[in-house]
C-alpha cells in the first residue's frame, strides 16, 4: 500500500528525515514510534501529500504521490496531531463539511465506524470546540473517514486521551482493519505499539528498527534486573555507578537496572554487597516494548537529561 524509498527531508537548520525506507502492506497496522522531534509528523505530512519538498520516492498503491496527488488524496484519510476540526461548527456540521470537501456522504460514517459514531451521536449538535479531547479525536477520525479512504494516517491520535477512549479507539482501528483498511499510526504509548501488526522506531529521522512487536521485544540486547529491599534513593545513586550498569531508574519500591548481556545476577549481587547492600533482593525480569525502545534510542545517541 505504501512504499517509501530513500525518503529524506531537510529543513533550513536541520535534517528531519534521512534515508527512510519501509513499506506498509495492504490491511496492515504499522505503528511509528519515536522521541519528540524524531520526524514522525514530518513523515506524515509527506505521505499525506501536503509536502512536496523531499528527496526519494513515495508510492501509495503503486502511484508516485508527487505526480498523482489527486488520486492519492481520494484514497487517503489523515488526522494530523494538531486540532484540525472547525471549532465553531457542530459535530454534524463538521462531518457534512468534510464530506462536501472530499466527496462523500456523512451518513457513511455510521456504517464505516459505528463504534466511534455511537459515542458521538448524542453530541452531534455540540460545537466541536466544546467536546472533550477524546471526543474531538473521535470526530476527527470520523471526518477523515467520510470519503471512504483505504489508507488512514493517524499522527498521535491518542496523546492526552484517557484509557477508556484509547481502548475504544484501538478497537475501532482493529475493526476498520478487518474491513481492509491500511493504517499508519504514531504513538507514545508502548502498549499500543505492542498490539499493532508491525512497529517502526525512528530516531532523528532515521529508521532504527522495523519488525513484529514480539520480534522487537525479543531483540533486547541487555538484561533487566529489579533490585529491592533498600530505600530507593541511596540504592539508585549507588547502582547507577556500578560497572556494567547501562541504565538505572526508580519504579515504585524498586530500582531497575539494565546491564550488559554477559553480567549475571550473582555478579550484580557481589558488586552491590561491596557497596553496602548485602541483603539486596535481585530478580531478572523480562523487558517490554518500552525497555527496548529506550535502550534502542539511548544507544543511538539520544541525549538524556539525568
Amino acid at each position: 500500500m505504501i512504499e517509501a524509498r530513500h525518503i529524506a527531508k531537510r529543513f533550513r537548520d536541520r535534517q528531519a528525515l534521512r534515508d527512510l525506507n519501509f513499506s506498509v502492506e495492504k490491511g496492515e497496522i504499522l505503528c511509528i514510534m519515536g522521541a519528540n522531534g524524531a520526524g514522525k509528523s514530518t513523515l506524515f505530512n509527506i505521505i499525506a501529500t501536503l509536502d512536496d519538498e523531499y528527496e526519494g520516492t513515495l508510492r501509495v498503491r503503486g502511484m508516485d504521490i508527487r505526480e498523482n496527488k489527486r488520486q492519492v488524496r481520494k484514497i487517503l484519510g489523515y488526522v494530523s496531531g494538531r486540532f484540525s476540526l472547525y471549532g465553531d461548527l457542530t459535530v454534524a456540521e463538521n462531518l457534512s463539511f468534510f464530506a462536501a470537501a472530499y466527496g462523500g456522504n456523512p451518513r457513511e460514517v455510521r456504517r464505516q465506524c459505528p463504534g466511534l459514531w455511537h459515542h458521538l451521536e448524542s453530541s452531534s449538535r455540540k460545537q466541536a470546540k466544546h467536546l472533550s479531547g477524546g471526543m474531538k479525536q473521535k470526530l476527527a477520525i470520523c471526518c477523515a473517514l467520510v470519503h471512504e479512504p483505504r489508507l488512514l494516517l493517524l499522527d498521535e491520535p491518542t496523546t492526552g486521551i484517557d484509557p477508556f477512549s484509547r481502548h475504544l479507539l484501538w478497537k475501532e482501528l482493529k475493526s476498520l482493519q478487518k474491513g481492509g483498511m491500511t493504517i499508519l499510526v504514531s504513538t507514545h504509548y508502548l502498549e499500543e505499539a505492542a498490539i499493532a501488526d508491525r512497529v517502526l522506531f525512528i530516531h532523528e529521522g532515521q529508521p532504527l528498527k522495523l519488525g513484529f512487536p514480539g520480534e522487537i521485544v525479543a531483540s533486547y540486547p541487555r538484561k533487566l534486573f529489579t533490585l529491592g529491599g533498600y530505600p530507593v534513593q541511596p540504592l539508585f545513586y549507588s547502582m547507577k555507578e556500578l560497572p556494567g550498569v547501562i541504565n538505572c531508574y526508580i519504579r515504585g519500591e524498586h530500582v531497575y537496572i539494565t546491564a550488559a548481556e554477559n553480567i549475571s545476577l550473582e555478579e550484580i549481587g557481589v558488586l552491590a554487597a561491596g557497596r553496602g547492600f548485602a541483603k539486596l533482593e535481585i530478580e531478572q525480569v523480562s523487558p517490554d516494548m518500552e525497555d527496548v525502545f529506550i535502550d534502542c534510542l539511548s544507544t543511538n545517541g539520544e541525549k538524556t537529561m539525568l
Binding site: A35, G160, L190, F236, L306
Partner: peptide
C-alpha cells in the same frame, strides 16, 4: 505528550 525516554526521566526525578 512526552516520549518514553522523557517520561521515564521525569518519573525518576519525581521518585527521587
Amino acid at each position: 505528550g512526552l516520549d518514553a525516554i522523557s517520561r521515564r526521566e521525569l518519573w525518576n526525578l519525581i521518585s527521587l
